[in-house]
Amino acid sequence: MDVFMKGLSKAKEGVVAAAEKTKQGVAEAAGKTKEGVLYVGSKTKEGVVHGVATVAEKTKEQVTNVGGAVVTGVTAVAQKTVEGAGSIAAATGFVKKDQLGKNEEGAPQEGILEDMPVDPDNEAYEMPSEEGYQDYEPEA
């Protein structure tokens, strides 16, 4: 019985440690998101679009440190934060509304985080759909 109880105690310690790591990862992701939003706020009209992409990228980098179902929630929060940063930029006159959601080359930025393969159960990952990809044929 002692062996059984000791095993359960060790398992509990492992769960607590994993929860603490997840909590730490979420806190880091939130900190990076805040950094990115402050970065966007300090940019001029020309830099705002690039700044919004930076927020998304920093958040995406930190999301990889967070495991399990938390990833889905962090990704949703990050996307809403990026959308909010863009709205703030438009409201303050840093950028025109028609410039939001495009990178410096004018290509749409939507789907940055949505296409990231995420499995809350950590069982399997699927690649994003290939609808947006084109076949590449090298020139002879």
Rank of each mutant, 00 (worst) to 15 (best):
K12R: 03
S129V: 00
D98E: 06
F94V: 05
K21W: 06
Q79V: 04
Q109A: 08
V52A: 08
E61H: 05
T72W: 04
S87V: 04
G132F: 12
L113M: 07
Q99I: 11
T33S: 08
Y39M: 02
K80T: 04
V66H: 03
E110T: 07
G41E: 01
D135F: 05
K12I: 15
K6I: 07
T72F: 00
H50C: 10
V77H: 03
A17F: 08
E61A: 14
G68Y: 11
T44H: 04
A30P: 02
V40W: 00
D115Q: 11
P117A: 06
K10E: 01
A30H: 00
G67V: 15
Q62R: 14
V40R: 01
D121V: 09
Q109Y: 11
Y39H: 09
V15P: 00
K96T: 06
E137M: 11
Y39S: 09
E20M: 07
F94M: 08
G51D: 02
V77D: 02
L113V: 02
E28K: 14
A56L: 02
Y136D: 02
V70T: 03
Q62A: 15
F94N: 05
E35F: 12
A91W: 10
E137P: 08
Y39F: 14
H50N: 10
E83I: 06
E104S: 04
E139V: 08
K23F: 11
K34Y: 13
G68T: 12
Q79G: 06
A29E: 00
V15I: 13
E46M: 12
A53T: 01
V3Q: 08
L113P: 05
E130W: 07
V71A: 10
E137V: 13
D121Y: 15
P117C: 10
V118S: 08
K97D: 12
E28I: 11
E123V: 10
A85S: 13
A89L: 13
A56N: 04
G86A: 13
M5A: 02
L38F: 09
V66K: 07
A27W: 09
V37G: 07
V16K: 03
T81F: 02
P128T: 05
V66Q: 01
G86R: 15
K60C: 10
F4P: 00
D115A: 08
K32N: 03
D98V: 11
A27T: 07
M5Q: 02
D119V: 10
Y39Q: 07
E137D: 07
K45L: 10
T64W: 14
G101S: 09
L113G: 12
Y125M: 02
D98I: 11
G14I: 15
Y125K: 07
A29R: 05
A53V: 13
Q99P: 13
N122Q: 08
Y136M: 13
A91Y: 14
G31K: 07
G41I: 07
A85Q: 03
G86C: 08
V37W: 11
L100D: 14
G51T: 10
G93W: 14
K34P: 00
V118N: 14
E131T: 05
E110R: 04
A90V: 13
G132E: 08
Q134W: 14
L8N: 00
A69R: 13
T44N: 02
Q24A: 02
N65A: 03
M1H: 00
M1L: 03
E130N: 08
E104Q: 02
A89F: 09
N122M: 05
A85I: 12
G86S: 13
K6L: 05
K6T: 03
V95D: 04
F94A: 03
A90W: 15
D135W: 06
A27K: 12
A69E: 02
T64G: 08
S129K: 07
M5V: 08
E83A: 12
N103T: 14
E126P: 11
K32M: 03
E35K: 11
V37Q: 00
A27Y: 14
K80V: 03
E57K: 14
E105H: 12
A29F: 01
G14D: 06
Q99D: 10
T92Q: 11
K97A: 15
D2Q: 11
T92C: 04
E104V: 06
D135C: 12
K80H: 09
G25V: 02
E137S: 06
G31F: 14
A17N: 15
E61V: 03
V66E: 01
L38E: 04
L38R: 11
E123M: 09
G14R: 12
G41Y: 10
A30Q: 01
H50K: 06
A78W: 11
G106R: 01
V118I: 08
V66D: 01
G68E: 03
Q99W: 10
V16N: 08
Y133P: 15
V48K: 01
E28R: 14
G93I: 11
N103F: 11
Q79M: 04
P108Y: 09
K10I: 11
K80Y: 04
Y133S: 04
D115M: 06
I112V: 15
N65F: 14
S129M: 10
Y39T: 09
H50I: 11
T44W: 13
T75Y: 14
K97W: 13
V70W: 03
V52K: 00
Y136V: 11
G41D: 00
T59N: 02
P138A: 10
Q62I: 15
H50M: 06
N65Q: 06
K58E: 03
L100I: 12
E130V: 06
A69P: 04
E131K: 05
S9I: 13
A11E: 00
A27V: 10
T75G: 14
P120R: 07
A27L: 13
K23D: 00
E137Q: 10
A91F: 15
Q79R: 01
T72N: 05
S9H: 04
A107E: 11
T75A: 10
D119F: 07
G132Q: 11
